[in-house]
Design a protein around this nucleic acid. Structure first.
Lengths: 331, 331
DNA sequence: TCTAACCAATAGAGCGCTCTAACGAGAACC
DNA sequence: GGTTCTCGTTAGAGCGCTCTATTGGTTAGA
């Protein structure tokens, strides 16, 4: 028999379909008596409104589409938390999609998100092409998190990766380190910014930058350290600024493998403050991004645009903060 | 002007709306000439079908609803990967929702998922009440992952937690350990099973079980170990079977804190083989659940029911496997 | 008493699509 | 030449809702 529809409820309650619609939407222009009758009928039939039909008829959507580049990275989970909080608060539902870090596949995933005609779209650390983003932004508000853009039609929420790296360097310098290397994040999102921050801080302190090509994974971090060790045995860095936490964990392993103790022989700083870094066994000094806040801001940016309260793009640049744990020590 | 509709495309191509519909669905009963004309028109107008309208009209859904209890746990990410793979393959889209581990909130989240009238629903490690699940299962197929149930209307996909624990114990016994304690997962999902497997294996080997109450977190693991150390200094276990990987990481930290080396003084086994365990710095011996496969099976179970190929419930019980790394050694 | 003003309630069109039934045109059959 | 088939195409109803306009009934205002 399928699920009951509004029509069924109306018949059961002896009223019109329109009246049921009003009750379901909590309209004040319904008499108490009828309202109760309708609610009882709905209850008895086990009725609940059909979100798609509603959205089709009202030409509005209560859905925010979220595309996450990589569900495996707990970094995004907290951003989603923040998004979720605001969305729920403002009466929106989240539908999440995953992109798998390939532009082609993310393009498809974005298409399927858009086919639901969401009220707004949040892209978390995705790698879809700028053109695809621009096209999407013509249909509904789009906010980019952990990714920057030149597009003037989309909002962005990022942490100040440059400042974050600078903080890491400043911390190490204040501990007396002079030879500080950076394991960079290659082509990963925000990697260039972090590298630039590192560079700038080093020069500011009158120190020579040393960037080792790496990536956002632990294996890459380990490899980078081994390269470093193989290259210049004589004059090794006494401190490392890693691309992110995963990278730092790999570096840590490779250092210990080589008989170097952290932080006694080498100090190490990560980036992101993922749950990983907080594990007591690792206790990684790292740079924290206010992820929850970033999620909140992203949702708010969307809601503002959806409500038509703003048309100018907004560029949130959040302040990272240093979390000092056990992998850094005085020279 | 809003997005173009099928009507617009039809007018632009000089055909009927129905013909456009046929083309969009890839029907073979359309002449090559018209097909091209329609596709060109669609392209020119930037048309793409409206998933909700389609689903409303066809009275079918191509959406699988997924509720994840906790996005922070990377354990679920791989299950989603498996789900995603099969879903994409079979022409379904995933919409993901998060539950936040509170029955009340998960109930709401489930409701909002269902309001999209998905073709099927997968619940990953959720804590919604059995009654809510039963109600949902009346509307469309439901599959439970990492959670068991007595309901005969839903499918389940689980690993054999009992067997997994037994494997851990067997491994330790084969290394010569006799005093093996279990840090249990409290009321967490599947914890009872793992505890039972531990118990059984110990008795099978003629050894005395020793269960320490704990939970699925690293802080709980650390606390459990400290309790253990405080209690029986004289006669400490030489090996530990932890509730899961997170718990094991906490235990590891507490052990090292107390000056005990792993695996030289104490051997340690985790559970889940999360990415955590694989980190070279931890290199945790652990029990692997075939998560990707679990996701695949869950999706397949849904698809089978959706297609009406099966009505009897299916109970997948997957074989875990032991991954030996560096935290276990001969006594 | 009549009209204006309100109120709860409803009829009916329409959102963007699918689907059934029917259409016309040509081919195939006897 | 008429019938039947086939095939590409279309009209039109309808999916479950919302929304605009309208109804009839009551109350207030003059």
């Amino acid at each position: 028999m399928g699920r009951p529809t509004m029509e069924d409820v109306a018949r059961h309650a002896g009223v019109s379909r329109a009246l049921v619609s009003l009750v379901m939407r909590g309209s004040p222009k319904v008499s108490e008596q009828r309202r109760r009758a309708v609610l009882r009928a709905a209850e008895e039939l086990g009725y609940s409104p059909h979100a798609m039909a509603r959205s089709l008829a009202s030409r509005t959507s209560t859905v925010l589409g979220v595309m996450v580049s990589d569900l495996h990275n707990p970094f995004f989970a907290e951003i989603v938390d923040g998004l979720d909080e605001v969305a729920r608060d403002q009466g929106f539902d989240l539908i999440i999609n995953t992109g798998s870090r390939s532009p082609a596949r993310e393009r498809r995933a974005l298409g399927s998100l858009l086919s639901f005609r969401p009220a707004g779209v949040a892209l978390l650390g995705t790698v879809v092409s700028s053109a695809d983003i621009a096209a999407a932004a013509e249909q509904q508000p789009v906010v980019l998190v952990a990714r920057s853009t030149r597009l003037s039609t989309v909002d962005t929420v990022n942490d100040d990766g440059e400042a974050g790296s600078e903080m890491a360097v400043d911390h190490l310098v204040s501990l007396g380190h002079k030879k500080i290397a950076h394991l960079d994040g290659g082509s990963g999102s925000q990697a260039a910014l972090r590298r630039r921050g590192y560079d700038r801080a080093m020069r500011r302190h009158g120190l020579e930058p040393l960037v080792v090509r790496s990536e956002y994974t632990d294996t890459a971090g380990a490899r980078a350290v081994r390269d470093l060790l193989a290259a210049g045995e004589a004059d090794l860095p006494t401190a490392l600024v890693a691309a992110n936490d995963y990278n730092a964990v790999g570096a840590l392993a490779a250092l210990e493998e080589a008989g170097l103790r952290v932080p006694d022989d080498v100090s190490l700083v990560g980036y992101d403050n993922t749950s990983l870094a907080g594990l007591r066994h690792l206790s990684l000094t790292t740079v924290d991004q206010p992820r929850h806040e970033m999620g909140r801001l992203a949702a708010e940016a969307l809601v503002q645009r959806i409500r038509g309260e703003r048309t100018d793009p907004v560029r949130h640049l959040l302040h990272p903060s240093l979390v000092v744990r056990a992998t850094t020590a005085p020279r």
